[in-house]
Amino acid sequence: MTDVMDQTSPQIEVRNLKTYFYTEDGVVRAVDGLSYRLAKGETLALVGESGCGKSVSALSVMRLIASPGKIVEGEILLDGLDLLQCSETEMREVRGNRISMIFQEPMTSLNPVFTIGNQIMEAIRVHQDVSRKEARDRTIAMIRRVKISAAETRVDEYPHQMSGGMRQRVMIAMALACNPEVLIADEPTTALDVTIQAQIMELLAELQSEFQMSILLITHNLGLVAEVSDQVAVMYASKVVEHTSTAELFASPLHPYTHGLLTSVPTLGMPREQKLNVIPGQVPNPLHFPTGCRFHPRCPVAEQRCKQEEPLLREVKPGHWAACHFIENGKSPIKGADR
């Protein structure tokens, strides 16, 4: 199914990724057969309800899953290189260098006891053989690039001396310090207030074109998705259920789940902070996913088949992939889904 997803070779491609947590209560299938592709220079938005496995999938790409978690299956291809086959040493070469990540919580993602300069420089020096002085100069330049004024003095400040937005800029500076091919931004603006969110997203967009990088944007925020992403992958219960271009998705959501998400968002101009998760019914427990289609307990159009047979992610329309038994001829089983 995946080989037909895109014509151009993707920057990063995830195939059938499974990341499980072996907890005392049982196996948490946090990511369970996830697939998506992200093209060079493009932005892919990964959306889905809280707990559906977005962050775990992102950390899996970085191979930063710690015990009791384990990547049990799948491929993660970075420009054709399967990261899951890399040694830990090779992987360290990738992290922060070819793939960088910024996190949701700028307040806690920086180490409080080191200066921001120190933390950015560290990212440079671990991957590039440069002198202290040069690393510092580049750090200052980087700080300037993320539009922090008085970079020369700020470089020696500690995180607690900065606001949340500033810190997220520092995180970005740190992530981009080595000019990565891929940037994973895991809800980069959720913790920030609205005006700052906009500034940060603008900054990211600017830097994206400047650095020619691909961005995997994890978010709850459909407004943001509509504004900045090229492609969208919708996750439900540890899997992708729909994957297509942003315009197509908003124009004709085919999966009943996506439809549910969008109908709970009446206009594109909705407040950004509005969360998903307004579909009636329970978010499934990753310890015991429902049989068949995992969405069936909440699906308004579910039938007997849905309980027994799991739908595959398939190209239901050119350039449009979805996992539902009842999408036929590019039509959603839900009436009036196309707009």
């Binding site: 070469e93 992290r95 922060g96 996190f103 180490n111 560290e122």
Partner: peptide, 26 residues
């Protein structure tokens, strides 16, 4: 378990540097 430890790992630091530099001091 702190977020900044994950940040440090995401930079590509070795586990030793992560634990001894970022973890220990805190």
């Amino acid at each position: 378990r702190q977020d900044y430890m994950r940040t440090a790992r995401a930079k590509g630091l070795t586990e030793r540097v992560v634990v001894f530099k970022h973890g220990l001091r805190n």
